[in-house]
Structure formats: C-alpha cells, structure tokens
Amino acid sequence: MGVFSEAVEVICSPAGQPLRLRWQGRSYRIVAEPVRWYERRKWWAEELRAERGRGAGLVDHEIWRVQARLNSGSQIRTLDLSHQVDADRWRLIRVHDAVRELSA
C-alpha cells in the first residue's frame, strides 16, 4: 500500500458521494458503494491558530474509500481520498494493493 498526498479532481452526486475521479490525467469511474469515515487531523501542527467559530473541518478529515477503474476491462483499484469540506479540495492519500478479480 502506498501512502502519500496528491490532489485529485472528484465529481460527486448531489448528495456528495464520489462518482468519478481524475488522477494523473486519467478518468476513473467509481464501481462500488464508497465508504466514508472521519479521521482526527493534527490541526495544531497544520494551522497557525484556530479561529473563533471555526470548527467544521478543523479537527476531523472526511475520508472516502472508493473502488475505481478506468474502463470495464481494467483492474479495480482501491483508493482512499481525503475531502477538505470547507475548501472542497480532494486529495488521494492511499493506494491499496491491487484487488485480484475472481473469474466465475
């Protein structure tokens, strides 16, 4: 598994769920129901100060785990995306080992 941080473009449903993403000049389609959770971030190391009244997005990161592929013949990739809600910025933070598809 690779852990890093790289900007990606994400297209979401009206409810905010990722549908497609653009990474390294290629467009990926989400092929399974994404999973969302929140992770605590080290805001004290990343921010100069916490502004009064600012809470959403300061303490926790919204994380989405998606399974995506380029086209119907390509391999499914499992990716973790971090969403900075207040700025609507997305970053790819983890690429998991390749999933082997089982043929029936």
Rank of each mutant, 00 (worst) to 15 (best):
G25P: 08
L81Y: 01
A56E: 08
V95K: 02
D88F: 02
A50P: 00
R36F: 00
I93L: 03
N71T: 01
G25Y: 06
L81F: 02
K42Q: 13
R22H: 13
V59C: 01
G55L: 14
V66A: 06
S103C: 03
I11Y: 05
R65Y: 00
F4L: 15
S82D: 01
W64Y: 04
D97P: 09
W43V: 07
R89E: 12
G57W: 04
L81R: 05
G2V: 13
L102Y: 02
G57C: 07
D60M: 10
R65K: 05
G53M: 12
M1G: 15
R77Q: 13
H96D: 04
W43Q: 03
R52N: 13
I63F: 01
V66E: 06
E33Q: 11
D86A: 09
L48T: 10
L92R: 07
E39G: 03
I30Y: 03
V95N: 02
E9C: 09
R91I: 01
V3A: 08
Q17P: 06
A7F: 04
H83N: 02
R52V: 15
V95M: 08
L81Q: 04
L70C: 13
G73A: 09
D80M: 01
Y38T: 13
H96G: 05
G55N: 10
W23Y: 15
S82N: 01
A45V: 07
R40F: 03
Q17V: 15
W64D: 06
P14H: 10
T78A: 01
R100H: 06
A104K: 06
E46N: 01
E46C: 01
W64L: 07
G57Q: 04
A45C: 02
R89D: 11
A15D: 15
R29H: 08
G53S: 13
A50Q: 06
R40P: 14
K42A: 14
V99M: 08
D97G: 11
E62M: 04
V85T: 12
K42V: 08
G57S: 04
R36D: 01
V8S: 13
S13M: 08
V35C: 04
R41N: 10
W44G: 00
D60E: 09
H61W: 14
D60C: 08
R20K: 15
R100E: 14
V8N: 12
D60H: 09
R100P: 03
L48M: 03
Y28I: 14
S103N: 11
R49C: 11
R69A: 14
V35L: 07
E51M: 11
A56L: 10
N71I: 00
H61T: 02
R26D: 13
E39V: 02
L21N: 12
E39Q: 12
P18M: 07
S13P: 14
S74E: 10
W44S: 01
V59N: 00
M1N: 05
G2C: 09
R26Q: 15
Q17D: 11
L79W: 06
Y28W: 15
L92Q: 09
A15R: 09
E9V: 14
R41M: 03
L92F: 03
L21M: 15
A56W: 05
E51F: 06
L21R: 10
G73L: 08
L19Q: 15
G55Q: 10
L21W: 06
Q84V: 06
